[in-house]
Amino acid sequence: MVNFLWTIGQSFQPHYGYGRRMITRLNCLITTIDDIYDVYGSLDELELFTDIIERWDVNAIDQLPYYMQISFLALNNFVHEMAFDILKEQEFNVVQYLRKAWIDQCRSYMVEARWYYMGYTPSLQEYSQNAWISISGPVILAHAYCFTTFPMTKESLASMEDNMTNIIYWSSMILRLANDLGTSSLELKRGDIPKSIQCYMNETGASEKDAREHIRYLISEAWKKMNRERATSSSFSQAFMEYAMNVARTAQCIY
């Protein structure tokens, strides 16, 4: 229910019915795999799980615990189902691009898992460099791109990899910072890594109130940069740009 509510905020138009169904399923997978890294997996299990995802090796899953086997196969089937749908619709194979988005996602989860087991608190900059990916903005937008862009080309998909300087980065950063403002206290209690608020407090000695104010300022600055990117970029379709904006808007609404 919650995962479908997110998709309504990101694409409410009737003709995006397929996209809402697929992104809802994607969000369910993100939620499940995020919990594997945050709650259920031991460090050794997570290292192995990440390695198998990086190689996308279905034949290696017997090395994993049962619950990780189920999760990887569900992910594999979902990625190939969506790639099949896009291939039928546009005669263009996106499977490698969707896999790469998930590989990047799980690598970022693994970084945070190592920090947690080390008891390490990164600087705000170091945290942010990883956290804009781990919040799942890029993987969501990689999948959304497939049903908001016609026609797709190798050149346009290559531009998806230039995340650090485009609207994907700023949308994901707002999603991350809004999430931290809304959930970090609860997540720390259940045993998660320090979020942007705690990283800033640890780095500067600021109070929690001042740290939260600083994160709100960063969100405001990110909006300015995203608006500027939208006004000047020609890399993406307007439909995709609006979707990216809506990811950030929905995050601030929900959190």
Rank of each mutant, 00 (worst) to 15 (best):
A239S: 13
T232R: 08
G137D: 12
S42H: 03
V139Q: 11
I103K: 13
Y18K: 10
R230E: 15
L46I: 01
A206C: 05
R20W: 06
V79H: 13
T204F: 06
K154M: 11
F236V: 02
P151Y: 00
S42D: 11
Y145T: 01
I168H: 11
I33Q: 14
S159D: 12
Y117C: 12
I61F: 15
A60V: 08
M1Y: 06
R249I: 00
R176T: 01
T50G: 14
D192C: 07
M164D: 04
M160F: 10
F147L: 07
I168T: 13
M164L: 03
Y109A: 00
M118E: 09
I168M: 09
I254L: 10
Q238K: 10
D180T: 01
I8F: 00
A131E: 02
I167W: 06
Q10A: 04
V95W: 12
I33K: 15
R176H: 09
C106D: 09
D162Y: 10
E203F: 00
A222D: 07
M118K: 12
N59P: 12
Y117D: 10
A211F: 06
S235P: 14
M110F: 08
S237N: 07
K88F: 03
S134M: 04
P122R: 05
S71A: 12
F78D: 14
Q198C: 05
C199V: 00
I197K: 13
D210C: 00
Y67D: 07
R216Y: 15
V111N: 02
Y127I: 00
F72K: 05
G137E: 13
V58I: 09
A248S: 08
A158D: 07
A74S: 11
T148N: 11
V79D: 11
V2E: 10
Q96E: 09
V94S: 09
F12S: 10
D104K: 08
D38V: 00
G182W: 07
N59E: 15
E126F: 01
V139A: 10
K154N: 11
T50S: 13
L177W: 12
Y66F: 09
Q252K: 03
I215K: 15
W132D: 05
M1V: 02
Y16P: 00
L141H: 10
L157R: 15
S172L: 03
L141V: 03
Y109S: 04
